[in-house]
Design a binder for these strands. Structure first.
Lengths: 173, 173
DNA sequence: GTCTATACGTTGATAGAC
DNA sequence: GTCTATCAACGTATAGAC
């Protein structure tokens, strides 16, 4: 991976996350990366190839974030970590996650399955905590987290401490 | 409003909701509406004017949906109606709502304020029901509803009866 | 690996006839 | 109100030189 290649990737990530995939031209990416436009196609084949390279790179980061939650054995601690996910996610790799959310609407490219390990883990945690309906409880919190992350990524002003405390209290953690 | 104008609007709504605003060309809209491309610009000025005409029309429908909830005086009934919103919304005016959700990501055109009346109404309802933290409770359910509506609009398979019953039970309605 | 030059369809938009 | 013809700018993508 040369320096120019990295320039292309980081410029593309930023632009795609900000303005969307379709609305970002390859020439814009080239300029932002201080690179000739042809180079993008040499390295990534076409515009979609560039997007996929970005997505592949992010995939590993996503797994890291998830694994910290789903391999937690203490059920209360697991729910606690899940609840804090939106606020952590928003700080590091902000652009990557914004791109993910944009893409699921722009290209209907939603990896619905990416939530699944987390949902299963939460279901299990709620089971251990003797909740009446663990499956629904997990789905409920999944939709909430999805909505919350989205709001944060769009820049909504959210009082994270207040929200976290409210949730910790609600789930008696 | 002539027939051709209506053709343009309905074709545009469908295409914008399906494929996104940027990804839909005016020529595509013209073909789908069986109309010359020039006519679109005669009537709506430019592509964004067409989008705004669509949004204005939808605004009234949105108000109707909201008003049915927020003017409910019985707090339990209000929460019940709010909970059922995602499932009702998805049936009628599906394309309009899908466009709304797409737009808030594609053009960062999110009318954050559009949720506000509902949020205020829910806060009030939770107050009447003696909840410990009505404001946060309303915000919590807002994010949940946002996530849920999104999932439904993207075509996620969701068991609406199971989900509704779970929620009615959870909020003791 | 990288750049320049270029091909060529598509895009949003306008002018003028009917 | 509606259509046809037309435009310049921009879009993705390729070829060939260094």
């Amino acid at each position: 991976m040369t320096e120019k290649q990295e320039n292309i990737l980081s410029a593309a990530l930023k632009l795609f996350a900000e303005e969307g995939f379709s609305a970002t031209s390859t020439s814009k990416v080239a300029k932002a990366a201080s690179v000739s436009e042809g180079l993008i196609f040499r390295h990534f084949g076409n515009k979609e190839g560039l997007l996929n390279a970005l997505l592949d790179l992010g995939q590993e980061k996503a797994k890291l974030v998830y694994s910290n939650v789903i391999f937690e054995t203490d059920p209360k601690e697991l729910i606690r970590k899940a609840i804090q996910l939106p606020f952590n996610v928003a700080k590091e790799d902000h652009d990557f996650w914004r791109l993910q959310f944009k893409l699921k609407w722009e290209l209907n490219k939603y990896n619905e399955a990416s939530w699944e390990p987390l949902q299963v883990a939460m279901t299990n945690a709620f089971k251990k905590l003797k909740y009446k309906n663990p499956e629904m409880e997990a789905e409920y919190i999944k939709h909430f987290l999805d909505g919350l992350v989205g709001a944060i990524l769009r820049g909504s002003p959210i009082d994270d401490i207040k929200m976290t405390n409210f949730l910790l209290d609600k789930y008696q953690l």
